[in-house]
């Protein structure tokens, strides 16, 4: 499906499908000195992400306080967290952030088919990350942490690990589902450049949080 580009007075490119322009057009908003031409959806997503950052901040704070105040953090019999495998997962999420930013750039340029391709790759990255996390927890081709003695509720080390990484994993899962929904809508000509940009904000946030989780939970 072809997209047309509409240039607003400020020179921005607003992409829209030619056949769905009437119902899904990206109308240039009046310029606001504080938020420019950001849509209500984009501002709403930023507010959600800030509140979500506080949720992650709360978890990481609890982790830091428990660890900082613990005389023994990792008890005998509990496994050391594997860095190399998780570094691979980190690289995977970084790659998926790049594919997402490519989707956003192509959406701004009005190339709907390329947007679908990049979104599909991003969803694949999310699915692979989830598979990696399942392997780490329960094991697919080798023993997972739960079989090596890292049991939720047995120690603060185990509980904080599962809570923080599990909460992040829930974000990856919901983000992957979100991508697939927008991908279907884009293929059907129902998503516009703003929808892709808002989706991109969520996915990059998931990547951003993982960068911090990787450092605080695995590396420090």
């Amino acid at each position: 499906m072809n997209w047309t580009e509409v240039l607003s007075e400020s020179g921005q490119i607003h992409a829209m499908s030619a056949t769905t322009a009437a119902s899904h057009a990206v109308h240039p908003l009046p310029f606001d000195p504080a938020i420019g031409q950001a849509t209500a959806g984009k501002i709403g997503m930023w507010i959600f992400l800030i509140s979500d950052a506080f949720s992650f901040g709360g978890f990481l704070l609890a982790y830091g306080i428990l660890r900082g105040g613990a005389e023994v953090w990792r008890h005998p019999g509990e496994p050391i967290l594997g860095i190399n495998f998780t570094a691979g997962l980190t690289f995977l999420l970084i790659c998926s952030s790049v594919t997402m930013v490519m989707a956003v750039a192509n959406a701004a340029e009005g190339n709907r088919s390329r947007v679908s391709r990049w979104l599909a790759l991003t969803a694949l990255g999310g699915a692979l990350f989830l598979a990696g996390q399942y392997q780490e927890y329960f094991g697919i081709w080798s023993h997972g942490l739960s079989k090596e003695g890292l049991i939720f509720g047995r120690s603060a080390y185990a509980s904080t690990f599962y809570l923080v990484t599990g909460f992040h994993g829930a974000h990856v899962l919901s983000g992957t589902i979100y991508i697939l929904i927008v991908l279907l809508r884009n293929t059907a000509g129902k998503a516009n450049a703003n929808d892709i940009e808002i989706l991109g904000l969520f996915w990059h946030f998931v990547d951003l949080v993982w960068i911090l989780v990787f450092t605080f939970i695995y590396l420090l």
């Binding site: 607003s8 400020s10 921005q12 490119i13 607003h14 992409a15 990206v26 908003l29 310029f31 938020i35 420019g36 031409q37 950001a38 849509t39 984009k42 860095i83 190399n84 570094a87 980190t90 690289f91 970084i94 790659c95 952030s97 790049v98 930013v101 490519m102 956003v104 750039a105 959406a107 701004a108 340029e109 450049a193 703003n194 892709i196 940009e197 990787f214 450092t215 590396l219």
Partner: peptide, 28 residues
Amino acid sequence: TPAGPTSHGRKPYLIVFGLLFAFTVLEV
């Protein structure tokens, strides 16, 4: 410049990607 879905060049993304990869290796 007002905010919105604007068209961005690809080069900065690839540079940032390279730096993120390099910093991850450095972290490990």
